[in-house]
């Protein structure tokens, strides 16, 4: 099942396209990192997926084909927007009660237990909580809805390292316990390397690359060799980024697998996730992202814990 499916999704504000021609199919069971610089279109994409924004063109669907923003979609998708909005003049207990009344499913005991574990007082007004606490409150409310898809817009940006750890730990535990799929956006890749197993890169309102992290890392390598030959191989291979010195050049190339032959006299190195993302961000439009995203694994096994 695909938890998110978009087809040529686009949004224009006035004359500017915030996102254009975005076709994605995110399968269930992953934590997908949505990365890109500010203004790349991450929030726009998320807003359209959760039904807050109406697309200018294309379609967005969630949870196996439910139109974004439809009642079934609202039921199964929980969203925490940037800065974790809550009603500042309501207490945490009130926010719990409010969320319980606004949704079909709400695990009140889970929410209360979680807030108690985190030391968030129930009677305090939400506006008086710290930034990290507000984020945790918003996450608790989202998780207590027992969604099938959790979408988080830059949730870590204003959190200190400990708060970040706690937040990610909560999200990952929910994945392990309940099988929630997660889409999480950030403009930093480094912190997501250990937690993300699916990657979506946006830059300048375009989708650059999307796929499972393992697949992406297996299909990209850095080829190091003589600078003189770099031009020749650059045209023959699918090169994402070239870095050239006087005598030596590095080509970050996309291959069809680890067993691809290496040009004679060249060395092949594996790529790190951060290197990969940076390369795609610096050289936008180099690949055909939609073709790559459609690479499915021959057998996808689903296992429950």
């Amino acid at each position: 099942m695909n938890v998110i499916e978009t087809r040529e999704l686009g949004k224009r504000y006035g004359k500017t396209w915030a996102l254009r021609d975005c076709t994605l199919a995110l399968p269930a069971g992953h934590l997908a990192a949505l990365v890109g610089p500010n203004g790349a279109g991450k929030s726009t994409l998320m807003n359209m997926v959760v039904g807050l924004t109406v697309p200018t063109e294309g379609t967005a669907a969630v949870l196996d084909g439910q139109p974004a923003g439809s009642p079934a979609a609202l039921n199964g998708v929980a969203f925490v927007a940037q800065d974790a909005p809550v009603y500042k003049n309501l207490s945490s207990a009130d926010m719990l009660h409010l969320t319980a009344n606004l949704n079909q499913r709400f695990d009140r005991s889970f929410a209360k237990a979680r807030l108690a574990d985190l030391g968030i007082p129930l009677k305090k007004k939400a506006g008086k909580l710290s930034g990290g606490q507000q984020a945790q409150l918003a996450l608790t409310l989202a998780l207590a809805r027992k969604p099938r898809l959790l979408i988080l817009d830059e949730p870590l940006a204003s959190l200190d390292p400990i708060a970040r750890q706690d937040f990610l730990s909560a999200v990952l535990t929910a994945m392990a316990d309940d099988g929630v799929s997660v889409l999480l956006s950030s403009h930093q890749v480094a912190e997501l390397e250990r937690v993300a197993d699916y990657l979506i890169v946006l830059s300048r309102a375009q989708l650059q690359v999307a796929g499972e992290v393992d697949d992406l890392l297996a299909c990209h390598r850095v080829l190091t060799g003589p600078a003189a030959e770099a031009q020749e191989y650059a045209t023959r291979l699918t090169v994402v980024q070239t870095r050239r010195g006087e005598t030596q050049a590095h080509l970050l190339a996309r291959t069809s697998g680890p067993a691809d032959p290496v040009p004679p006299g060249w060395e092949s190195h594996p790529v790190s996730l951060e290197e990969l993302v940076m390369a795609y961000l610096r050289s936008p439009g180099v690949s055909e992202p939609t073709a790559f995203a459609r690479v499915q694994r021959a057998t996808s096994k689903e296992a429950t814990r």
Partner: peptide, 25 residues
Amino acid sequence: MSVLTLPAQPGQDTAPRPLPWRRMA
């Protein structure tokens, strides 16, 4: 790669019952 998924509960995501107005009150 194996992934974790929630076993589908019947009728969970399709056409949810509308929430009672009392709650909205």
